[in-house]
Each structure stands twice: as C-alpha cells, then as structure tokens.
C-alpha cells in the first residue's frame, strides 16, 4: 500500500468513530425483533439502506484527507452507495410494489417517503454528473456536487429519522449525527469559489 493512502494522524480517531458508529448501527439493526417477520428480500433492502447511510460519513474524509488513493476510494464508495440505493428501492419494490409506486409518484401517505425519494433522485443525478465530471468546469462540478450532497444527506437523514423500522433508536440518531457532522465538515472544507 502506498503512503499516499494513509490518513493524516489527526483524522485517525474521527475515522475510527465513523467506522464504529456504522458497525454499531448495523449490529443494532441486526437485533431488531421485526426482522423475524420479514422475508429475506425485505431484510436485505432495509440493510442496504442502512449500509448506504453508513458510507456517507466516510466520503468527506477520503476526499479531503485520503490523498490520491483516498479520492479513488471516494469514487468507488460513491458508486457503492449508488448501488445500495438501487438494492434498497428494488427490494422494497419486490416487497410491496404499490407502496413504492406511491412513494415514487410523491403520493405516499408516509411523511418520510418524499425525503427518501428526493435523496435517491439526487444520488442518481450525482452518479450521472460524476461520469461527466471531466467535461464540466471544475468549479461548476464542485458546486453541483455540493448542492446534490446537501440534498442527498439531508433527505437521507430525514428519511431515516422519521421511519419506525429495524434500526435501534440510539444508534440511528448517533449515525445520523455523524453523517451530518461529516457532511458539514466536508462542505466547510470544500472551496466553492
């Protein structure tokens, strides 16, 4: 492994904290009593959503403090989050098509659906824009990326907090706090003009 991969020492503990909260959230959800009443497709789609959220706080650390390999990792983790959102929504669609169709058409009775769908649209848009990155002026790319990140993170956190699901209450709020902190730090670190 090249030395350009290593995080700066001052980011060791934040990085460990991010990993620990992610593992905590996944383990706590794995102990939910609701899991036994769900078939495997529904279980996987739920965990795909949690896993995507766990990846979010890793992103600004890799982008700003991970060197060249960190920026490469940032792209792969972004692609992984994109794929996890597809698994999340696809699994929910198989589990209950009418509920997902209502959400996608913005007519769902559940208040969290609109935030989940907004976040999903933003992450898909970011995927498309990221592929076209080299054709976009750097500062335009950066601003579009940041605007979409704010939508993705804000939407995902509201979506998560409002849901009564398998996530543990405390670990859910802890993970959301870490996601918001990391995103805020990332936006603060990014020169936008």
């Amino acid at each position: 492994m090249s030395s350009s991969f290593w995080l700066k020492p001052r980011l060791l503990w934040p990085a460990i904290a991010v990993l620990a909260v992610g593992v905590w959230a996944l383990v706590a959800a794995g102990q939910s009593p609701y899991l036994q009443y769900r078939d495997w497709v529904y279980v996987i789609s739920g965990f795909a959503g949690i896993a995507a959220l766990c990846l979010f706080p890793v992103q600004p650390i890799l982008a700003h403090e991970g060197g060249i390999n960190g920026r490469l990792g940032h792209r792969w983790i972004g692609a992984a989050a994109f794929a996890l959102v597809l698994v999340h929504v696809g699994g929910l669609w198989i589990t209950s098509p009418p509920d997902v169709i209502d959400a996608l058409l913005f007519r769902s009775p559940t208040p969290f659906s609109v935030w989940g769908v907004a976040s999903m649209i933003a992450i898909f848009a970011l995927g498309v824009v990221a592929i076209l990155r080299r054709r976009i002026a750097p500062m335009v790319w950066r601003r579009v990326h940041m605007a979409l990140v704010v939508l993705i993170v804000g939407g995902a956190v509201l979506h998560t907090v409002l849901i009564i699901g398998t996530m543990g209450q405390v670990s859910k709020y802890a993970l959301c706090a870490v996601v918001l902190l990391a995103a805020g730090w990332g936006v603060w670190r990014t020169r936008l003009s």
Binding site: Y37, R38, S96, T110, F112, S113, L162, I163, I164, G165
Partner: peptide
Amino acid sequence: IVPAFGQA
C-alpha cells in the same frame, strides 16, 4: 401488527 414500510 408489526411496523412495515416505516409505520405500524
């Protein structure tokens, strides 16, 4: 009844 799709 158990919560599904985010609400009981």
